[in-house]
């Protein structure tokens, strides 16, 4: 079976949807962050696939590299914030942190 562009796109769309689903449903803040990673990596797959299956310059691979680095930086900062949340709230359940509302 030939692997075509569409296969990659289906995978990335699924990844994106799982990511979004995870962000919305998981209580644990760390799992929410994982969901965000999934979204970013879905985009990465897109970049790489489009780059591979088009005859233009391979700009998508560069983009993917950038995104990987950024994802790392983002998780570092997000985890630091989650740590701080744990210090002040003594739990990291996202749906219980809702003092600021309305």
């Amino acid at each position: 079976m030939n692997i075509t562009l569409n296969h990659f796109l289906i995978v990335s769309s699924l990844l994106f949807s799982f990511g979004l689903y995870g962000i919305v449903t998981r209580k644990n803040a760390v799992m929410v962050l994982m969901g965000i990673e999934l979204i970013l990596n879905a985009a990465n797959i897109n970049f790489l696939a489009f780059s591979r299956y088009s005859n233009s310059i391979d700009f998508g691979q560069v983009a993917a590299l950038f995104v990987i680095i950024l994802a790392a930086a983002e998780s570092a900062i997000a985890l630091a914030i989650v740590l701080n949340i744990y210090k002040t709230f003594v739990n990291i359940n996202v749906d219980e942190i809702d003092k600021l509302r309305e």
């Binding site: 803040a29 965000i36 914030i81 709230f89 996202v94 942190i97 003092k99």
Partner: peptide, 12 residues
């Protein structure tokens, strides 16, 4: 607590 909560919501 307010500030911390703000940053968590903001980052997510």
């Amino acid at each position: 607590t307010k500030s911390t909560e703000a940053s968590l919501k903001y980052v997510i």
